[in-house]
Write a protein that binds this DNA or RNA. Structure first.
Lengths: 246, 246
DNA sequence: CGTGAGTTTGAGTGCGCTCAAGCTTAGTGG
DNA sequence: CCACTAAGCTTGAGCGCACTCAAACTCACG
């Protein structure tokens, strides 16, 4: 997840780590060539704001490596994260030049990007591209709706447990199967970013993380490094057994 | 909005009240004929559950008239509404047979519906259809993300004001321009449904509605019938001036 | 070591929840 | 036409979870 990619190594789409999940996933080799012709890579430093809300964007991007967030801010400083962007996630909205959210790199982030106009032309030309974009947008919508349940109806403790379960599933599903026991992964966010994700304060996040630790649901080894001895134990703390469709 | 449609009157798509906003909006007359061939109408009574979470659905639907909601329920009864469905909104997810939310008719609801398989075939055949579905899904995603800010970061009073502003914009935009003064519209939901929408209890909704009334921001004439003397006054109570993109 | 970002912990407060009546309104049948 | 009913709405009292404010601690990095 956190290993760094040198853009040079990525010139060939066939070797791309997100080839099977990104917006280009459904494309045939011939169609890929069209995309290849207009793509370029760019890397952002951790902490850098990739796009400001209201900006007219010049490119659509796919995250190749790293973690970014989508968030909104109220005039008085209250913030709410509305999207967690992991490798293969798409940034931008074809058919609309503006973006209405801030996009921030939380780790070093490398994106594969396309100028808007040429990409929109390809969208019209390659059905596979539009098809994949539709599926990804629907997945994002489902995720947003699950998240609304978390924000609207769960307690602080349940929110933290839900967040950890979501991240565990997303991070670990990238690298294959998900074991039931002794999961280890990294929440790549600060306590403050987690608070923005969950509609809490950073103090409450800290308290609940330590409460889950004290109760043996999780093991905290280096603040961000999480170990989950028994995954179903964590899921039981989320308040719903239905799980998430991430 | 609440006038009743007789399905017989709707047989011709050209006369359809949602012709310009529904999933078929981008279709040419010839393409419309294909859809027309597989469509049928169905009406649900107010209060009826149109689809249960987990159901395998046989049809995709467009709301022609009435109001429906999309919601999730936790095992212990906590509920969160995750979508408010007004005329022209689409129900169902092509490419996936199941639905993971409850769909409930809040008023009498008439839908124009298509069997899944034939509709999916047309999706492959008519680019305009896929294009419109993508745009609608992206609009839904934007709406869900605005809503997440409301759920995660706003006070009860701000939530109510945001809700009223959203409904005013959606309801009134259907019938043309939106005046700044003396808006009148109907929140078609009970206090309980509003609470499910906003992540509040029905008591808190009631208290805050009456607080806004006492402060002259809104006029309550028949519990559900809202009058807004000065719209910007209401928007000022939402906590953000940016407004909503509904 | 010194610095600063990130995190933890404590004490006190208040917003929205819970529980409990009572009220309003529309619909139904005598 | 009115009593009866039930669903929806309002109002009050009290409580508790998560917030606010404040201070101390941890740890990576110069």
């Amino acid at each position: 997840m956190t290993e760094l990619f040198s853009p040079k190594e990525l010139l060939r789409c066939a070797d791309c780590p997100i080839r099977k999940r990104a917006v280009c996933a459904y494309c045939e080799p011939a169609e890929l060539a069209d995309l290849d012709a207009i793509k370029s890579y760019k890397t952002f430093a951790a902490g850098e704001t990739m796009v400001w809300s209201g900006d007219v964007v010049s490119h659509f991007s796919s995250i190749v490596s790293g973690v970014a967030t989508l968030s909104q801010t109220l005039d008085d400083g209250r913030r709410q994260m509305v999207g967690l962007l992991l490798p293969s996630d798409f940034i931008g909205r074809p058919g609309r030049g503006q973006i209405t959210f801030d996009v921030e790199a939380k780790t070093e982030v490398t994106v594969c990007r396309f100028e808007c106009r040429p990409f929109e032309v390809l969208l019209g030309k390659i059905p596979h591209l539009r098809e994949r974009l539709l599926d990804m947008t629907m997945d994002d919508l489902d995720a947003a709706r699950e998240w609304m349940l978390v924000l609207g109806r769960k307690t602080a403790r349940e929110k933290i447990a839900s967040f950890l379960a979501i991240v565990a599933r997303r991070v670990l599903s990238v690298e294959g199967a998900m074991p039931e026991r002794d999961l280890e992964f990294d929440v790549m966010l600060t306590r403050e970013a987690m608070a923005d994700y969950l509609g809490l304060t950073l103090e409450t996040v800290s308290r609940q993380m330590n409460a889950l630790k004290k109760d043996g649901v999780i093991v905290l080894e280096k603040k961000r490094a999480i170990k989950v001895p028994v995954f179903s134990r964590l899921v039981a703390e989320t308040g719903d057994d239905t799980g998430f469709s991430f």
